[in-house]
Write a protein that binds this DNA or RNA. Structure first.
Length: 991
RNA sequence: GCCCAGAUGGCGGAAUUGGUAGACGCACUGGACUCAAAAUCCAGCGGUAGCAAUACUGUGCAGGUUCGAUUCCUGUUCUGGGCACCA
């Protein structure tokens, strides 16, 4: 009986489905384990071999945990809302719901072939009303809450109203006084009001003020606008000034937008990283994204010169300029101030003398796109004509305007300390501003030195103090004299939460008289209406604005962004069919945190931060019992494509009649392509190749006699990797590729007229357009799902990125065939028997149990696969076909290769699923040896080996070793200085 | 520019706590079986010298600590990833 993997795999996939083998219950006396994959966006391209890597790893772990006696939640779903489906709809006129549905079907059939143990009864789809009802519901909770900085948690907005009615907002100032809502009466008050003032406000003002506090709020703000996509994008969706999806240019634009006040959670998102098991790289990425820095805000008085000829007296106190700095210790090194071009003070402080120049500069800055600004960082700027007064030295400090200061960070203004800051230094040098040195020898006059280790000079009351310590001293002084305060800043911005798009969750919000009102819960889900056109609505609004019934109800016309549904989907798996709640508290208490979350690094700052914030929020308002969603996160590496190239030759030739032709049907092997730049007419190489080409031409034109007069080798041209065996082109298949475009192709092989045609290789991203995708379906068809699963794991550590290479899959397939042969032989039939196992055989088994258990626990799946191979080889060598050994081995292997194991399990006479067995117990006693071969070294050089009893002590070992004639020879009569004995490992004698 | 991770045979990669480097697989070479092929099995496989036993050498490069270093320390080069005017 041979290993017929196709039959076996189809049979068991059906059996598991029929028997609901992977059904998971929320009621179980077993301990729980929650193993989660990042659910996919169902794109039209389908799966390539890179996608299942993480799914296979988590599947193995889930099955392993189940064998270990855990009740394992492992489910799959689709992050189905998003831009690509809508772009596709615009281009092809197919409704996103239809294309998404088709893509999901395709994904599902691809996934099913690999044999995952998902509980498909718990499948979720973020674009289904049953799901997004709860996305909308959670949004309403965010809308109905604010962040109380005193208690450090989210609270209901009603409690805030109570506070306002009693004490105004003295104890709870506006989170960041940016006035997103633009309410004039509120701004007039500077954002502060008393209880009486609050009670006197009209409804509109009250609601506008509350909006400044809500965790989900609508306001005006500068957003990343992508014209090509017709929508705003969150910061993490913009890479180098272009959109992450599609690479379209992105500009800054002020628009009315919904936001999530994630900045209120910045500190807790940071602290939370200490209690989760993420990779250091991942923690660092999130930490950098949050970008917490502490320092001080310092106020400088701005003076204006008396206008008119020759006047140099500072007379009028114009305004105050607040800067943010992390280095208040360098306050005496300030030589100038710089404010962002968009700073509100620009207009106010600029003097008439400099006005036209400043205006020219502002015009220039405006003309520069975000992208240009990032790409070329030249020093630009203009003097405003205004000065401010140093709060301590009372010196006049010029105020400059430059684009290197960003309006969005800190106060949009800085105090420039050129001796300590590289950018300030460049600026000072460029505009010839004199530089004050406050760090003595640490500054060499050529380069700024951002050290904190210098002892301050030229710094008045800070003189002689180490910079590190001076930071505190300076802040205290600044606070003492009332010119500033300690301040913590974050790079992270509030998350833009609306898209001017169709294919997303509608906001359950109704607008009345400019006030946003939540829809009643009973009206949820607010279903996405059908549209005929996906064109944007008027004035930057989404397609929903084109629907009369929608706008008649004054419903919000924006939709939620792609990350809305994915921020909480892991909770829905726990209780997917609940129509009364997003997730029953009992269910979320039982399943609790995700024990293992596997996915790519690309979500480091998007999805992972948002879902962490939503979890903290739901925790704050008492809906779940934990505030970090993922206990352990494993990032699978990316599988890159390995592209193959062929090299076309354009050759000119002439026949004996003097007729010349040009032929481009000949391809040369890599060896010749590598030399293409060195080959010149008349060279030895050139002559050799032109002769070969003439020979090949005679194949294409058999009746003519052409001689090559000139040729050139083109750059490599991508060829489908599936037409290549390793690097060797499969010529017959290549000739049929692209409907026979290459049917006349002739090849100059590696050895010239004979040998193989070898392709060039390059590693790049896997994509259809590069012809380097490998479809898992093809591999499953050829080798079976079990081989495919094990091979993906065998490639290397899950976390590592590597190019795909199909070559080695044969080795894994051979292993499974060999494993099968321990049970059944093609010719001899049944091999397994009921005989009692020997110690040697049990040793093989228990070595495998130990290794595989350890490796699976620590996600070292590649070494675990090796361990299976070793065990199988050893048992084959021992001719061991004993059920006593094979049965536990089968259970060990079941998480990795479930189909073959299930089949053999049943062939061994069992009727239940192998998944319900328990993981074999490792027994130390089978591995215990009474004695062991020890390597004996003299001064670290291996000299001999001696068998020593394992329980021998230090002295006994010394005696045995010194008695050995080989060692005696090496010692040459000298007594050893030291004998180092590492139990179980080695003995080293130091002379 | 800054931060992080890595560099081991022809290739993918092992070596879990400082203890016999190169497990396992691919590729390659030779052999057995076969009319032949496939499949399977056996042997070899870092480098240098040697018929061989064996010796020396060897984990990007240069040093250091140690009886002993792929592993720890210092410097350096290269590769991959992240951030990038964040004051």
């Amino acid at each position: 009986m041979e290993y017929r993997f196709t039959d076996i795999e189809t049979k068991w996939q059906q059996w598991w489905k029929d028997h609901k083998t992977y059904r998971v219950s929320n009621n179980s006396p077993k301990p729980k384990c929650y193993v989660l994959d990042m659910f996919p966006y169902p794109s039209g391209a389908g799966l390539h071999v890179g996608h299942p890597l993480g799914y296979i790893a988590s599947d193995i772990y889930a099955r392993y945990k189940r064998l270990k006696g855990f009740n394992v939640l492992h489910s799959m779903g689709y992050d189905a809302f998003g831009l690509p489906a809508e772009q596709y709809a615009i281009e092809h006129g197919i409704h996103p719901a239809v294309s998404t549905e088709n893509n999901i079907k395709n994904f599902r059939s691809q996934l099913d072939k690999i044999g995952f143990c998902y509980d498909w009864d718990r499948e979720v789809n973020t674009s289904k009303p049953g799901f997004y009802k709860w996305t909308q519901w959670i949004f309403l909770q965010l809308f109905d809450c604010w962040y109380n900085r005193k208690t450090q948690k989210a609270e209901r907005i009603n409690e805030l109203i109570n506070i306002f009615e009693k004490e105004g907002n003295e104890n709870h100032p506006v989170p960041d006084a940016k006035f997103e809502i633009r309410n004039p009466s509120f701004e007039l008050l500077g954002g502060n009001f008393s209880a009486d003032q609050w009670n006197a406000f009209d409804e509109k003002t009250k609601q506008d003020i509350l909006m400044e506090y809500r965790l989900a709020y609508c306001g005006y703000g500068e957003v990343n606008w992508c014209e090509a996509l017709g929508t705003v994008l969150a910061n993490d969706e913009v890479i180098n000034g272009v959109s992450e999806r599609g690479g379209h240019p992105v500009v800054k634009k002020t628009l009315r937008q919904w936001y999530l006040r994630i900045t209120e959670y910045a500190d807790r998102l940071l602290e939370g990283l200490n209690k989760v098991d993420f990779s250091e790289a991942m923690k660092e990425m999130q930490t950098n994204w949050i970008g917490k820095s502490s320092g001080a805000e310092i106020e400088f008085r701005v003076m204006s010169r008396e206008s008119g000829e020759g006047s140099s007296n500072l007379t009028s106190d114009v305004s105050r300029l607040t800067v943010y700095t992390t280095r208040p210790d360098t306050i005496f090194g300030v030589d100038f101030m710089v404010i962002a071009p968009e700073h509100e003070l620009v207009n106010e402080i600029v003097t008439d003398e400099y006005r036209s120049e400043v205006e020219k500069y502002l015009e220039y800055v405006k003309s520069r796109s975000e992208r240009e600004r990032m790409a070329d960082k030249k020093v630009t700027g203009v003097f405003s004509g205004a000065y401010c007064i140093h709060p301590f030295s009372k010196k006049q400090i010029p105020i400059w305007i430059s684009e290197y200061v960003l309006i969005g960070y800190g106060t949009g203004a800085i105090m420039a300390v050129p001796c300590g800051d590289e950018r300030d230094h460049k600026f000072a040098k460029h505009f010839n501003i004199p530089i004050t040195n406050i760090i003595g020898n640490y500054y060499n006059g050529e380069e700024a030195n951002p050290t904190k280790d210098a002892i301050l000079e030229n710094s008045d009351f800070l003189n002689g103090i180490l910079m590190k310590d001076a930071i505190e001293v300076a802040i205290k002084k600044i606070e003492e004299i009332g010119i500033g305060k300690r301040k913590v800043n974050y790079k992270m911005r509030d998350a833009a939460f609306s898209r001017q798009r169709y294919w997303g969750e509608p906001f359950p919000i109704v607008w009345k008289n400019g006030i946003a009102y939540p829809l009643d819960e009973k009206e949820l889900p607010l279903e996405l209406p059908h549209v005929d056109s996906y064109k944007p609505g008027p004035e930057g609004e989404g397609p929903l604005a084109n629907i009369p019934e929608w706008t008649a109800r004054h419903l919000e016309t924006n939709t939620m962004p792609g990350y809305a549904g994915s921020s909480w989907y892991f909770l829905r798996y726990m209780d997917p069919h609940n129509e009364k709640e997003f997730c029953d508290r009992k269910a979320s208490d039982y399943w609790n945190q995700v024990d293992l979350y596997i996915g790519g690094t690309e979500h480091a700052v998007g999805h992972l931060l948002y879902s962490r914030m939503w979890t903290k929020f739901l925790f704050d308002i008492g809906l779940i019992g934990f505030d970090e969603p993922y206990k352990k996160l494993v990032n699978q590496g990316m599988i890159q494509g390995s592209s193959r190239f062929v090299y076309r030759v354009i050759c000119k030739a002439i026949n004996h009649k003097g007729v010349s032709i040009e032929c481009n049907d000949i391809f040369v092997s890599k060896r010749f392509a590598d030399r293409k730049d060195m080959m010149k007419m008349g060279d030895k190489d050139w002559n050799e190749l032109s002769e070969l080409l003439s020979y090949k031409l005679s194949k294409i034109f058999p009746l003519e006699d052409y001689k090559v007069t000139d040729f050139s080798i083109k750059d490599g041209q991508r060829v489908d990797v599936n037409l290549v065996d390793g690097v060797e082109l499969i010529i017959n298949e290549f000739k049929e590729w692209k409907n026979g475009e290459f049917k006349n192709a002739e090849f100059v092989f590696e050895e010239g007229i004979s040998g193989k045609y070898l392709c060039g290789v390059e590693t790049e991203k896997m994509s259809k357009s590069k012809f380097n995708t490998v479809n898992p379906d093809d591999l499953v068809y050829k080798y079976g799902a079990d081989t495919f699963r094990m091979y993906e794991m065998f490639l290397g550590p899950v976390e590592m990125s590597k190019p795909w290479d199909t070559k080695g899959i044969e080795g894994v397939h051979r292993f499974l065939k060999k494993f099968w042969r321990l049970f059944y032989d093609e010719l001899k039939g049944k091999m397994w028997n009921e005989e009692a196992a020997t110690d040697a055989e049990l040793k093989v088994l228990h070595k495998a149990i130990k290794k595989i258990e350890e490796d699976t626990e620590r996600f070292s799946f590649n070494t675990a696969v090796s361990a299976f191979m070793i065990a199988t080889n050893e048992l084959a060598d021992l001719k061991c076909h004993k059920k006593e050994v094979l049965e536990p081995l089968l259970i060990l292997l079941a998480p990795y290769a479930p189909h073959i194991c299930e089949e053999l399990w049943h062939l061994l006479g069992h009727s239940d699923t192998i998944l319900d067995q328990s993981f074999p117990r490792f027994e130390e006693k089978y591995l215990v040896e009474s004695s062991k071969e020890y390597p004996i070294s003299v001064n670290g050089k291996l000299r001999t080996t001696i068998t020593i009893s394992l329980d021998a002590g230090q002295d006994e070992v010394a005696q045995i070793v010194l008695a050995n004639p080989v060692i005696q020879k090496w010692l040459d009569g000298k007594p050893p200085k030291k004998i180092i004995f590492v139990k179980g490992k080695m003995v080293n004698i130091v002379v």
